[in-house]
Write a protein that binds this DNA or RNA. Structure first.
Lengths: 227, 227
DNA sequence: CGGCCAATTGAGTGCTCTCAAGGCGAGTGG
DNA sequence: CCACTCGCCTTGAGAGCACTCAATTGGCCG
Protein backbone atom coordinates (compact mmCIF):
# COMPACT_ATOMS: atom_id res chain seq x y z
CA UNK A 1 0.00 0.00 0.00
CA UNK A 2 2.96 2.34 0.47
CA UNK A 3 6.70 2.46 0.15
CA UNK A 4 9.13 2.93 3.01
CA UNK A 5 9.85 6.42 1.70
CA UNK A 6 6.29 7.51 2.02
CA UNK A 7 6.13 6.28 5.55
CA UNK A 8 9.28 8.17 6.34
CA UNK A 9 7.90 11.45 5.14
CA UNK A 10 4.53 10.81 6.69
CA UNK A 11 6.27 10.70 10.05
CA UNK A 12 6.70 14.43 10.00
CA UNK A 13 3.32 15.50 8.77
CA UNK A 14 1.44 18.73 9.23
CA UNK A 15 2.43 18.94 12.88
CA UNK A 16 5.81 20.28 13.87
CA UNK A 17 7.67 22.00 16.67
CA UNK A 18 8.10 25.12 14.58
CA UNK A 19 4.38 25.59 14.11
CA UNK A 20 3.86 25.26 17.80
CA UNK A 21 6.39 27.98 18.59
CA UNK A 22 4.95 30.41 16.07
CA UNK A 23 1.48 29.80 17.40
CA UNK A 24 2.62 30.08 20.99
CA UNK A 25 3.92 33.52 20.22
CA UNK A 26 0.49 34.51 18.96
CA UNK A 27 -1.11 33.35 22.18
CA UNK A 28 1.53 34.98 24.35
CA UNK A 29 0.82 38.39 22.86
CA UNK A 30 -2.94 38.04 22.98
CA UNK A 31 -5.30 39.79 25.29
CA UNK A 32 -6.35 38.04 28.49
CA UNK A 33 -9.80 37.80 29.95
CA UNK A 34 -11.17 36.59 33.28
CA UNK A 35 -14.41 34.76 33.69
CA UNK A 36 -16.10 33.95 36.99
CA UNK A 37 -17.58 30.53 37.71
CA UNK A 38 -20.95 29.95 36.00
CA UNK A 39 -20.44 32.87 33.60
CA UNK A 40 -20.83 32.25 29.91
CA UNK A 41 -18.02 32.91 27.48
CA UNK A 42 -20.45 32.75 24.58
CA UNK A 43 -23.78 31.22 23.64
CA UNK A 44 -24.90 29.12 20.71
CA UNK A 45 -25.65 31.40 17.78
CA UNK A 46 -23.40 34.26 18.89
CA UNK A 47 -21.25 35.67 16.12
CA UNK A 48 -17.86 34.04 16.38
CA UNK A 49 -15.53 36.87 17.22
CA UNK A 50 -12.69 35.32 19.21
CA UNK A 51 -10.75 32.14 19.51
CA UNK A 52 -9.79 31.33 23.09
CA UNK A 53 -7.21 29.34 24.96
CA UNK A 54 -7.67 28.39 28.58
CA UNK A 55 -4.79 29.76 30.65
CA UNK A 56 -6.16 28.49 33.95
CA UNK A 57 -9.46 27.19 35.21
CA UNK A 58 -12.01 25.14 33.30
CA UNK A 59 -14.74 25.71 30.75
CA UNK A 60 -17.45 23.40 29.49
CA UNK A 61 -18.88 23.40 26.00
CA UNK A 62 -22.46 22.22 25.89
CA UNK A 63 -25.65 22.14 23.90
CA UNK A 64 -29.22 22.10 25.13
CA UNK A 65 -31.56 19.62 23.53
CA UNK A 66 -35.28 19.53 23.27
CA UNK A 67 -36.63 18.61 26.68
CA UNK A 68 -34.03 20.79 28.30
CA UNK A 69 -31.43 18.10 28.67
CA UNK A 70 -27.88 19.29 28.43
CA UNK A 71 -25.06 17.49 26.67
CA UNK A 72 -21.59 18.60 27.59
CA UNK A 73 -19.53 18.18 24.45
CA UNK A 74 -16.18 18.81 26.00
CA UNK A 75 -14.40 20.10 29.05
CA UNK A 76 -11.66 22.58 28.23
CA UNK A 77 -8.87 22.79 30.77
CA UNK A 78 -5.56 24.59 30.89
CA UNK A 79 -4.01 24.69 27.44
CA UNK A 80 -7.14 23.74 25.52
CA UNK A 81 -8.35 25.86 22.64
CA UNK A 82 -11.98 26.90 22.25
CA UNK A 83 -13.90 28.23 19.29
CA UNK A 84 -11.84 26.98 16.37
CA UNK A 85 -13.66 26.31 13.13
CA UNK A 86 -14.87 27.96 9.97
CA UNK A 87 -18.41 28.64 11.15
CA UNK A 88 -19.39 32.30 11.50
CA UNK A 89 -21.53 31.60 14.55
CA UNK A 90 -20.79 29.67 17.70
CA UNK A 91 -22.14 26.14 17.58
CA UNK A 92 -22.45 25.57 21.28
CA UNK A 93 -22.49 27.32 24.63
CA UNK A 94 -19.33 27.85 26.65
CA UNK A 95 -19.52 28.30 30.40
CA UNK A 96 -16.80 28.67 32.99
CA UNK A 97 -16.93 26.01 35.70
CA UNK A 98 -14.62 27.87 38.03
CA UNK A 99 -12.82 31.19 37.90
CA UNK A 100 -11.04 31.02 34.57
CA UNK A 101 -8.39 33.00 32.73
CA UNK A 102 -8.54 32.98 28.94
CA UNK A 103 -6.23 34.12 26.18
CA UNK A 104 -8.24 35.68 23.37
CA UNK A 105 -7.34 36.21 19.74
CA UNK A 106 -9.90 38.01 17.56
CA UNK A 107 -10.99 35.90 14.61
CA UNK A 108 -10.04 38.76 12.33
CA UNK A 109 -6.47 38.75 13.61
CA UNK A 110 -6.29 35.00 13.37
CA UNK A 111 -7.54 34.94 9.79
CA UNK A 112 -4.90 37.46 8.79
CA UNK A 113 -2.18 35.56 10.61
CA UNK A 114 -3.29 32.36 8.95
CA UNK A 115 -3.19 33.89 5.49
CA UNK A 116 0.28 35.30 6.04
CA UNK A 117 1.91 32.51 7.94
CA UNK A 118 1.33 28.88 7.01
CA UNK A 119 2.77 27.79 10.35
CA UNK A 120 -0.03 29.46 12.22
CA UNK A 121 -2.52 27.79 9.92
CA UNK A 122 -0.93 24.44 10.59
CA UNK A 123 -0.88 25.09 14.30
CA UNK A 124 -4.61 25.70 14.22
CA UNK A 125 -5.03 22.65 12.04
CA UNK A 126 -3.28 20.60 14.68
CA UNK A 127 -5.49 21.90 17.44
CA UNK A 128 -8.62 21.18 15.43
CA UNK A 129 -7.34 17.75 14.53
CA UNK A 130 -6.80 16.98 18.18
CA UNK A 131 -10.29 18.13 19.04
CA UNK A 132 -11.74 15.84 16.41
CA UNK A 133 -9.88 12.88 17.84
CA UNK A 134 -11.09 13.70 21.34
CA UNK A 135 -14.63 14.11 20.15
CA UNK A 136 -14.58 10.74 18.39
CA UNK A 137 -13.20 8.99 21.42
CA UNK A 138 -15.90 10.51 23.54
CA UNK A 139 -18.46 9.45 20.96
CA UNK A 140 -17.30 5.83 21.12
CA UNK A 141 -17.49 6.01 24.87
CA UNK A 142 -21.10 7.21 24.86
CA UNK A 143 -22.15 4.75 22.21
CA UNK A 144 -20.79 1.59 23.69
CA UNK A 145 -19.93 1.78 27.31
CA UNK A 146 -21.76 1.17 30.59
CA UNK A 147 -22.04 3.77 33.32
CA UNK A 148 -19.09 2.29 35.19
CA UNK A 149 -16.90 2.22 32.12
CA UNK A 150 -17.82 5.78 31.21
CA UNK A 151 -16.98 7.13 34.62
CA UNK A 152 -13.75 5.16 34.72
CA UNK A 153 -12.84 6.58 31.31
CA UNK A 154 -13.48 10.07 32.56
CA UNK A 155 -11.41 9.60 35.70
CA UNK A 156 -8.55 8.08 33.75
CA UNK A 157 -8.52 11.01 31.36
CA UNK A 158 -8.33 13.41 34.30
CA UNK A 159 -5.52 11.38 35.77
CA UNK A 160 -3.60 11.46 32.47
CA UNK A 161 -4.06 15.20 32.28
CA UNK A 162 -2.66 15.57 35.78
CA UNK A 163 0.33 13.54 34.71
CA UNK A 164 0.84 15.68 31.61
CA UNK A 165 0.96 18.77 33.78
CA UNK A 166 3.31 17.25 36.30
CA UNK A 167 0.70 16.91 39.01
CA UNK A 168 -0.10 13.81 41.03
CA UNK A 169 -2.02 11.42 38.75
CA UNK A 170 -3.36 9.60 41.81
CA UNK A 171 -5.32 12.52 43.20
CA UNK A 172 -8.08 14.10 41.16
CA UNK A 173 -9.38 17.51 42.07
CA UNK A 174 -12.70 17.56 40.24
CA UNK A 175 -13.41 21.05 38.95
CA UNK A 176 -16.91 19.87 38.11
CA UNK A 177 -20.12 18.93 39.89
CA UNK A 178 -21.87 15.57 39.62
CA UNK A 179 -24.36 17.19 37.29
CA UNK A 180 -21.59 18.25 34.95
CA UNK A 181 -20.16 14.75 34.93
CA UNK A 182 -23.60 13.29 34.27
CA UNK A 183 -24.24 15.63 31.36
CA UNK A 184 -20.82 14.88 29.95
CA UNK A 185 -21.20 11.12 30.17
CA UNK A 186 -24.82 11.00 29.04
CA UNK A 187 -26.03 9.71 32.41
CA UNK A 188 -28.12 11.07 35.25
CA UNK A 189 -26.69 12.55 38.40
CA UNK A 190 -28.03 9.63 40.43
CA UNK A 191 -26.32 7.07 38.23
CA UNK A 192 -23.04 8.97 38.44
CA UNK A 193 -23.32 9.09 42.21
CA UNK A 194 -24.16 5.39 42.48
CA UNK A 195 -21.27 4.56 40.18
CA UNK A 196 -18.86 6.57 42.32
CA UNK A 197 -20.10 4.61 45.32
CA UNK A 198 -19.65 1.34 43.50
CA UNK A 199 -16.06 2.18 42.56
CA UNK A 200 -15.44 3.22 46.15
CA UNK A 201 -16.82 0.00 47.62
CA UNK A 202 -14.77 -2.00 45.13
CA UNK A 203 -11.69 -0.24 46.44
CA UNK A 204 -10.88 1.34 43.09
CA UNK A 205 -11.15 4.89 44.33
CA UNK A 206 -11.42 6.74 47.60
CA UNK A 207 -13.66 9.76 47.95
CA UNK A 208 -11.92 12.30 50.15
CA UNK A 209 -14.74 14.77 49.65
CA UNK A 210 -17.13 15.57 46.83
CA UNK A 211 -14.43 17.29 44.84
CA UNK A 212 -11.40 15.18 45.65
CA UNK A 213 -10.94 11.62 44.45
CA UNK A 214 -7.96 9.46 45.25
CA UNK A 215 -7.23 6.55 42.94
CA UNK A 216 -6.45 3.41 44.92
CA UNK A 217 -6.25 0.86 42.11
CA UNK A 218 -5.04 2.40 38.87
CA UNK A 219 -4.87 -0.96 37.13
CA UNK A 220 -8.49 -1.79 37.65
CA UNK A 221 -9.61 1.74 36.85
CA UNK A 222 -7.74 1.63 33.56
CA UNK A 223 -9.08 -1.82 32.85
CA UNK A 224 -12.60 -0.55 33.40
CA UNK A 225 -11.85 2.37 31.12
CA UNK A 226 -10.97 -0.21 28.50
CA UNK A 227 -7.25 -0.24 27.99
CA UNK B 1 -18.85 41.84 23.35
CA UNK B 2 -18.02 42.92 19.81
CA UNK B 3 -18.37 45.79 17.41
CA UNK B 4 -20.36 45.73 14.19
CA UNK B 5 -17.10 45.82 12.27
CA UNK B 6 -15.85 42.64 13.81
CA UNK B 7 -19.04 40.85 12.98
CA UNK B 8 -18.81 42.04 9.39
CA UNK B 9 -15.35 40.65 8.91
CA UNK B 10 -16.19 37.49 10.78
CA UNK B 11 -18.82 36.80 8.14
CA UNK B 12 -16.13 35.86 5.66
CA UNK B 13 -13.92 33.76 7.85
CA UNK B 14 -11.48 31.03 6.96
CA UNK B 15 -13.93 29.49 4.52
CA UNK B 16 -14.25 30.90 1.02
CA UNK B 17 -15.24 29.99 -2.50
CA UNK B 18 -11.67 30.48 -3.70
CA UNK B 19 -10.29 27.89 -1.32
CA UNK B 20 -12.85 25.45 -2.49
CA UNK B 21 -11.90 25.88 -6.12
CA UNK B 22 -8.18 25.49 -5.46
CA UNK B 23 -8.82 22.40 -3.42
CA UNK B 24 -11.20 20.99 -6.00
CA UNK B 25 -8.45 21.22 -8.56
CA UNK B 26 -6.23 19.15 -6.29
CA UNK B 27 -8.85 16.47 -6.04
CA UNK B 28 -9.63 16.53 -9.74
CA UNK B 29 -6.02 15.74 -10.62
CA UNK B 30 -5.62 13.05 -8.00
CA UNK B 31 -5.40 9.35 -8.53
CA UNK B 32 -8.58 7.28 -8.26
CA UNK B 33 -9.04 3.99 -6.51
CA UNK B 34 -11.84 1.43 -6.43
CA UNK B 35 -12.79 -0.55 -3.40
CA UNK B 36 -15.22 -3.47 -3.34
CA UNK B 37 -17.88 -3.80 -0.66
CA UNK B 38 -16.53 -5.01 2.70
CA UNK B 39 -12.94 -4.23 1.71
CA UNK B 40 -10.89 -2.09 4.05
CA UNK B 41 -9.35 1.15 2.93
CA UNK B 42 -7.11 1.19 5.96
CA UNK B 43 -6.93 -0.16 9.50
CA UNK B 44 -6.30 1.49 12.83
CA UNK B 45 -2.58 1.90 13.33
CA UNK B 46 -1.67 1.90 9.64
CA UNK B 47 0.76 4.63 8.67
CA UNK B 48 -1.27 7.50 7.29
CA UNK B 49 -0.22 7.74 3.67
CA UNK B 50 -3.21 9.14 1.80
CA UNK B 51 -6.11 11.46 2.28
CA UNK B 52 -9.23 10.31 0.47
CA UNK B 53 -12.42 11.74 -0.89
CA UNK B 54 -15.39 9.57 -1.71
CA UNK B 55 -16.33 9.97 -5.38
CA UNK B 56 -19.15 7.43 -5.24
CA UNK B 57 -20.28 4.72 -2.88
CA UNK B 58 -20.01 4.70 0.90
CA UNK B 59 -17.38 4.06 3.53
CA UNK B 60 -17.70 3.62 7.26
CA UNK B 61 -15.13 4.67 9.82
CA UNK B 62 -15.20 2.53 12.93
CA UNK B 63 -13.33 1.42 16.01
CA UNK B 64 -13.46 -1.89 17.80
CA UNK B 65 -13.77 -1.79 21.56
CA UNK B 66 -12.90 -4.33 24.16
CA UNK B 67 -15.57 -7.00 24.04
CA UNK B 68 -15.55 -6.84 20.26
CA UNK B 69 -18.28 -4.25 20.00
CA UNK B 70 -17.94 -1.94 17.07
CA UNK B 71 -18.65 1.77 17.11
CA UNK B 72 -19.12 3.37 13.73
CA UNK B 73 -17.78 6.89 14.08
CA UNK B 74 -19.00 8.20 10.78
CA UNK B 75 -20.43 7.23 7.43
CA UNK B 76 -18.61 8.86 4.53
CA UNK B 77 -20.67 9.31 1.41
CA UNK B 78 -20.10 11.05 -1.91
CA UNK B 79 -18.05 14.19 -1.38
CA UNK B 80 -16.87 13.36 2.11
CA UNK B 81 -13.19 13.49 2.99
CA UNK B 82 -11.48 10.72 4.94
CA UNK B 83 -8.19 10.63 6.77
CA UNK B 84 -7.59 14.28 7.53
CA UNK B 85 -5.59 15.13 10.61
CA UNK B 86 -2.08 15.55 11.88
CA UNK B 87 -1.66 12.05 13.24
CA UNK B 88 0.96 9.88 11.56
CA UNK B 89 -1.12 6.74 11.99
CA UNK B 90 -4.73 6.07 11.19
CA UNK B 91 -6.95 6.38 14.22
CA UNK B 92 -9.75 4.13 13.06
CA UNK B 93 -10.67 1.52 10.51
CA UNK B 94 -12.23 2.43 7.17
CA UNK B 95 -14.32 -0.10 5.31
CA UNK B 96 -16.29 0.21 2.09
CA UNK B 97 -19.97 -0.59 2.54
CA UNK B 98 -20.62 -0.94 -1.18
CA UNK B 99 -18.47 -0.68 -4.29
CA UNK B 100 -16.76 2.65 -3.80
CA UNK B 101 -14.64 5.01 -5.89
CA UNK B 102 -12.14 7.16 -4.03
CA UNK B 103 -9.95 10.09 -4.94
CA UNK B 104 -6.56 9.76 -3.26
CA UNK B 105 -3.95 12.40 -2.48
CA UNK B 106 -0.72 11.23 -0.86
CA UNK B 107 -0.11 12.92 2.46
CA UNK B 108 3.29 13.97 1.16
CA UNK B 109 1.74 15.80 -1.76
CA UNK B 110 -0.86 17.37 0.46
CA UNK B 111 1.69 18.61 2.96
CA UNK B 112 3.65 20.26 0.19
CA UNK B 113 0.54 21.80 -1.31
CA UNK B 114 -0.47 23.09 2.07
CA UNK B 115 2.90 24.68 2.70
CA UNK B 116 2.87 26.40 -0.67
CA UNK B 117 -0.73 27.40 -0.94
CA UNK B 118 -2.63 28.75 2.02
CA UNK B 119 -5.90 28.22 0.18
CA UNK B 120 -5.38 24.48 0.17
CA UNK B 121 -4.61 24.59 3.86
CA UNK B 122 -7.77 26.53 4.50
CA UNK B 123 -9.76 24.11 2.39
CA UNK B 124 -8.54 21.24 4.52
CA UNK B 125 -9.23 23.27 7.62
CA UNK B 126 -12.80 23.69 6.46
CA UNK B 127 -13.23 19.99 5.88
CA UNK B 128 -11.82 19.16 9.28
CA UNK B 129 -13.98 21.79 10.90
CA UNK B 130 -17.05 20.29 9.31
CA UNK B 131 -16.10 16.83 10.54
CA UNK B 132 -15.74 18.14 14.06
CA UNK B 133 -19.20 19.64 13.93
CA UNK B 134 -20.68 16.41 12.63
CA UNK B 135 -18.90 14.40 15.26
CA UNK B 136 -20.19 16.64 18.04
CA UNK B 137 -23.74 16.44 16.78
CA UNK B 138 -23.49 12.68 16.66
CA UNK B 139 -22.06 12.73 20.17
CA UNK B 140 -25.03 14.71 21.48
CA UNK B 141 -27.33 12.26 19.77
CA UNK B 142 -25.74 9.24 21.43
CA UNK B 143 -25.57 10.88 24.81
CA UNK B 144 -29.11 12.08 25.11
CA UNK B 145 -31.53 10.48 22.75
CA UNK B 146 -33.78 7.40 22.82
CA UNK B 147 -33.60 4.70 20.19
CA UNK B 148 -36.50 6.20 18.25
CA UNK B 149 -34.97 9.65 18.27
CA UNK B 150 -31.60 8.33 17.20
CA UNK B 151 -33.01 6.43 14.26
CA UNK B 152 -35.15 9.40 13.25
CA UNK B 153 -32.06 11.61 13.40
CA UNK B 154 -30.20 9.21 11.17
CA UNK B 155 -33.01 9.01 8.63
CA UNK B 156 -33.41 12.78 8.56
CA UNK B 157 -29.70 13.22 7.91
CA UNK B 158 -29.91 10.79 4.99
CA UNK B 159 -32.90 12.65 3.67
CA UNK B 160 -31.08 15.99 3.89
CA UNK B 161 -28.13 14.51 2.05
CA UNK B 162 -30.43 13.32 -0.70
CA UNK B 163 -31.79 16.81 -0.98
CA UNK B 164 -28.31 18.31 -1.14
CA UNK B 165 -27.48 16.05 -4.06
CA UNK B 166 -30.71 16.76 -5.90
CA UNK B 167 -32.22 13.38 -5.21
CA UNK B 168 -35.64 12.64 -3.78
CA UNK B 169 -35.51 13.42 -0.04
CA UNK B 170 -38.58 11.23 0.49
CA UNK B 171 -36.97 7.98 -0.59
CA UNK B 172 -33.93 6.66 1.24
CA UNK B 173 -31.77 4.01 -0.36
CA UNK B 174 -29.89 2.67 2.64
CA UNK B 175 -26.36 1.70 1.64
CA UNK B 176 -26.01 0.07 5.04
CA UNK B 177 -27.23 -2.99 6.90
CA UNK B 178 -29.15 -2.95 10.17
CA UNK B 179 -25.96 -3.96 11.91
CA UNK B 180 -24.20 -0.89 10.53
CA UNK B 181 -27.03 1.34 11.68
CA UNK B 182 -26.97 -0.27 15.11
CA UNK B 183 -23.23 0.20 15.48
CA UNK B 184 -23.53 3.79 14.33
CA UNK B 185 -26.34 4.66 16.72
CA UNK B 186 -24.98 2.75 19.69
CA UNK B 187 -27.89 0.30 19.70
CA UNK B 188 -28.34 -3.38 18.95
CA UNK B 189 -29.63 -4.73 15.67
CA UNK B 190 -32.84 -5.91 17.34
CA UNK B 191 -33.58 -2.50 18.75
CA UNK B 192 -32.97 -0.89 15.37
CA UNK B 193 -35.31 -3.37 13.75
CA UNK B 194 -38.01 -2.89 16.35
CA UNK B 195 -37.66 0.87 16.02
CA UNK B 196 -38.08 0.66 12.24
CA UNK B 197 -41.22 -1.38 12.84
CA UNK B 198 -42.52 1.15 15.32
CA UNK B 199 -41.98 4.04 12.91
CA UNK B 200 -43.69 1.99 10.22
CA UNK B 201 -46.73 1.18 12.35
CA UNK B 202 -46.98 4.85 13.34
CA UNK B 203 -47.15 5.72 9.66
CA UNK B 204 -43.97 7.78 9.76
CA UNK B 205 -42.12 5.64 7.25
CA UNK B 206 -42.87 2.85 4.81
CA UNK B 207 -40.43 0.00 4.33
CA UNK B 208 -40.35 -0.90 0.65
CA UNK B 209 -37.68 -3.50 1.27
CA UNK B 210 -34.80 -3.80 3.70
CA UNK B 211 -32.77 -1.26 1.79
CA UNK B 212 -35.43 1.20 0.69
CA UNK B 213 -37.33 3.44 3.06
CA UNK B 214 -40.03 5.87 2.02
CA UNK B 215 -40.80 8.76 4.34
CA UNK B 216 -44.53 9.22 4.76
CA UNK B 217 -44.58 11.89 7.43
CA UNK B 218 -41.59 14.19 7.23
CA UNK B 219 -42.95 16.49 9.89
CA UNK B 220 -43.18 13.82 12.55
CA UNK B 221 -39.85 12.30 11.58
CA UNK B 222 -38.15 15.65 11.95
CA UNK B 223 -39.94 16.27 15.20
CA UNK B 224 -38.67 12.95 16.51
CA UNK B 225 -35.21 13.89 15.33
CA UNK B 226 -35.53 16.96 17.48
CA UNK B 227 -35.93 19.98 15.22
C1' DC C 1 -36.24 -26.76 -3.39
C1' DG C 2 -32.71 -25.96 0.05
C1' DG C 3 -29.16 -23.20 2.04
C1' DC C 4 -27.66 -18.94 3.56
C1' DC C 5 -27.72 -14.40 5.27
C1' DA C 6 -30.25 -10.47 6.93
C1' DA C 7 -34.06 -8.87 9.27
C1' DT C 8 -37.99 -9.39 12.28
C1' DT C 9 -40.42 -10.74 16.30
C1' DG C 10 -41.00 -12.66 21.00
C1' DA C 11 -39.95 -13.48 25.94
C1' DG C 12 -37.43 -12.35 29.76
C1' DT C 13 -33.63 -9.86 32.08
C1' DG C 14 -31.06 -5.99 33.62
C1' DC C 15 -29.18 -1.47 33.58
C1' DT C 16 -30.29 3.08 33.90
C1' DC C 17 -33.90 6.45 34.72
C1' DT C 18 -37.48 8.63 37.57
C1' DC C 19 -39.33 9.99 41.71
C1' DA C 20 -38.62 10.60 46.48
C1' DA C 21 -36.34 10.81 50.88
C1' DG C 22 -32.33 11.53 53.56
C1' DG C 23 -27.40 13.06 54.58
C1' DC C 24 -23.49 16.17 54.49
C1' DG C 25 -21.12 20.60 54.67
C1' DA C 26 -20.94 25.51 54.52
C1' DG C 27 -22.80 29.75 55.63
C1' DT C 28 -26.05 32.57 58.48
C1' DG C 29 -28.49 34.38 62.24
C1' DG C 30 -30.28 33.95 66.84
C1' DC D 1 -22.64 27.47 70.18
C1' DC D 2 -26.52 25.70 68.07
C1' DA D 3 -30.42 25.66 64.96
C1' DC D 4 -31.68 26.64 60.38
C1' DT D 5 -31.29 26.74 55.54
C1' DC D 6 -29.55 25.92 51.15
C1' DG D 7 -27.00 23.51 47.65
C1' DC D 8 -25.07 19.38 46.45
C1' DC D 9 -24.72 14.68 46.92
C1' DT D 10 -26.21 9.97 48.24
C1' DT D 11 -29.33 6.23 48.70
C1' DG D 12 -33.68 3.67 48.03
C1' DA D 13 -37.74 1.75 45.53
C1' DG D 14 -39.96 1.00 41.45
C1' DA D 15 -40.66 1.58 36.39
C1' DG D 16 -39.21 1.48 31.62
C1' DC D 17 -36.31 1.04 27.79
C1' DA D 18 -32.91 -1.34 25.54
C1' DC D 19 -30.30 -5.69 25.77
C1' DT D 20 -29.82 -10.83 25.45
C1' DC D 21 -31.13 -15.09 23.87
C1' DA D 22 -33.94 -17.63 20.83
C1' DA D 23 -37.10 -18.67 17.17
C1' DT D 24 -39.11 -17.28 12.86
C1' DT D 25 -39.59 -14.93 8.55
C1' DG D 26 -38.12 -13.07 4.13
C1' DG D 27 -35.18 -12.54 0.18
C1' DC D 28 -31.54 -14.19 -2.76
C1' DC D 29 -29.01 -17.50 -5.26
C1' DG D 30 -27.38 -21.87 -6.61
Amino acid sequence: MQSAGQVEIARRPLASRTNEIRVERKWAHSRERHLEAKRHLFMEGDAKSFVYKVASGAVCLYRIQRGGRRQIIEFAFEGDVIGLGVATAEECNAQALVLTRLKCIPVVTLVNAVRQDASVALGMFEALSHQLLTSRQHLSCLGQRSATERLATFLVSLSRRNQDFGRDPGVLMLPVTRIDIADYLGLTIETVSRTFSKLKSRGVIQIENYKTIRIRNVGELEWLAGG
